[in-house]
């Protein structure tokens, strides 16, 4: 009896989560895949054709937005590494007893709704807002100067939104470094720069990888920042998918675009993991 219990235990443990995933992840995914291969309209119904034309057509129409999203996502991730690494480094090695407080401060903005914070940026950065209006009146900036509506505004918003998701994993990786390893490097006459380059940074790479994973993917598919801070010149693929789903009821091409985006992101992430050369980098990142 005990043996039966022991054999069943792992399955029973995985059952609730497994069922949940099956119902709310696997089933919608399959439905969406099927939808992406259908044709028709909402009134007369969609019929399965098995043709890939939704993919080719929507990609032909919206490749600019897809590429733009990936570029924004990549720039966001790079800027984030540059910004987050020093912060994480400082907290990990010089934070002392207040580490938890500093980390809490990094997380603090996240206690306010993400959309609300983005709207606040909109109010701050707007043409006649508190930031630009005084500068324009003082003649520092030309009257028609604007921040909102540009690619930089969107990337700025993305960087701001995802900063903690880069700081935290890098911090965790740095935190875990045994100080004696760094001391050993110094004992072997490595300069601070060399010990950083040859010891600390490589050991922090899994954290950077996790950070990129947690920022590049959501940043590329984000649509709130572009919607609120951008213009029609900064449209991202998430906005296209949203418009197709909700406004046009064009479920097949919306599904096709979603799958395309997912495939591109997966390929990108795996290529990145491969390029880093750490086979079990995913495992480390997952820890």
């Amino acid at each position: 009896m005990d043996r039966v219990k022991r054999t069943l235990a792992p399955y029973l443990l995985v059952l609730p989560g497994g069922l949940w995933l099956l119902l709310f992840f696997a089933v919608p995914m399959v439905t969406m895949l099927s939808l992406s291969l259908q044709e028709g309209d909402i009134v007369n119904g969609f019929v399965f054709t098995g043709h890939w034309q939704n993919y080719t057509e929507s990609l032909a129409d919206y490749q600019t937005q897809l590429i733009r999203s990936l570029v924004y996502g990549a720039i966001t991730s790079i800027v984030l590494i540059v910004l987050a690494f020093p912060v994480a480094y400082w907290i990990a090695f010089y934070g002392g007893k207040k580490k938890a407080t500093y980390l809490f401060l990094i997380m603090l903005p996240f206690f306010v709704s993400f959309v609300l914070r983005t709207i606040s940026w909109r109010m701050l950065l707007t043409d006649d807002g508190v930031l630009l209006h005084p500068l324009k009146s003082a003649g520092v900036l030309p009257d028609d100067f604007q921040v909102l509506g540009s690619s930089s505004a969107v990337v700025f918003g993305l960087v701001y939104s995802f900063l903690p998701f880069m700081v935290l994993p890098i911090y965790v990786a740095l935190e875990r470094i045994d100080p004696r390893v760094v001391e050993a490097a110094r004992d072997l006459y490595a300069s601070p720069m060399t010990s950083f380059r040859k010891v600390i940074f490589p050991l922090a790479l899994p954290g950077v990888f996790a950070g990129v994973l947690m920022t590049f993917v959501p940043a590329s598919s984000d649509y709130v920042n572009s919607e609120l801070l951008g213009s029609s010149e900064t449209t991202m693929i998430g906005q296209v998918i949203q418009a197709k789903f909700l406004s046009n009821s064009d479920y097949p091409s919306a599904s096709a675009l979603s799958f395309t985006l997912m495939a591109v992101l997966l390929i990108g992430v795996f290529a990145y993991a491969r390029a880093l050369g750490t086979e079990d980098v995913m495992k480390v990142a997952a820890r």
């Binding site: 129409d61 029609s232 900064t234 449209t235 906005q239 418009a243 046009n248």
Partner: peptide
């Protein structure tokens, strides 16, 4: 299809 591309530049 005619008008959507104007909005979603």
């Amino acid at each position: 299809r005619v008008f959507q591309p104007i909005v979603l530049g």
